[in-house]
């Protein structure tokens, strides 16, 4: 587990967000609270091999649509749900892939999974949160987490 605690998840997440979207992430100590959002999305990729971990990206629906609109080069109003899921899945994939790249040994990266809704919880049984980073992206709060099994 030591290898996971030494990873700089923030550096990876901020680099992916800035270079692919041009969005600035501002780290905050504010608690991640999506209760005020009607819907939010969580995208996740899993890393297996020398480590057993997952990277999750949580954003409110409004930010998810902004991300998709930027990636597709379209207006937010034109973006479909499928395009939001695709874009958010790819963001988690890029962060997870770069985390995997910091791990020695042969590891495998899963295809991304995206959950959307309100008032739900995602649990990886037997795992704990290794790193949890909350950011402001423009007016929205978002969170990136690294979860690993002991």
């Amino acid at each position: 587990m030591q290898v996971l605690t030494e990873l700089d998840l923030g550096e990876v997440a901020e680099s992916v967000w800035t270079s692919m979207l041009g969005f600035e992430l501002v780290a905050t100590d504010s608690p991640y609270d999506h209760a005020s959002e009607s819907r939010y999305l969580l995208s996740c990729v899993q890393i297996t091999g020398p480590i057993d971990a997952a990277v999750t990206v949580e954003v409110p629906e409004g930010l998810g649509r902004e991300v998709a609109a930027t990636m597709f080069g379209m207006d937010v109003a034109e973006i479909s749900d499928e395009e939001v899921w695709d874009a958010l899945g790819e963001m988690a994939n890029m962060i997870g892939g770069n985390v995997k790249g910091m791990v020695s040994g042969s590891a495998a990266l899963s295809l991304p999974t995206v959950a959307e809704g309100r008032d739900y919880r995602v649990v990886v049984p037997g795992a704990c949160v290794i790193q949890s980073l909350t950011y402001f992206c423009d007016k929205w709060l978002m969170r990136v987490q690294l979860i690993g099994r002991q």
Binding site: V16, M94, K100
Partner: peptide
């Protein structure tokens, strides 16, 4: 063009006949 950034992945790719490996995020 992949998020697979482990060093040995590039070797696997080149051995199989790839000309390059661009790691996401890219410019």
């Amino acid at each position: 063009v992949t998020s697979e950034s482990q060093p040995h992945m590039k070797d696997v790719a080149l051995d199989a006949g790839a000309l390059f490996l661009i790691v996401k995020p890219f410019s």
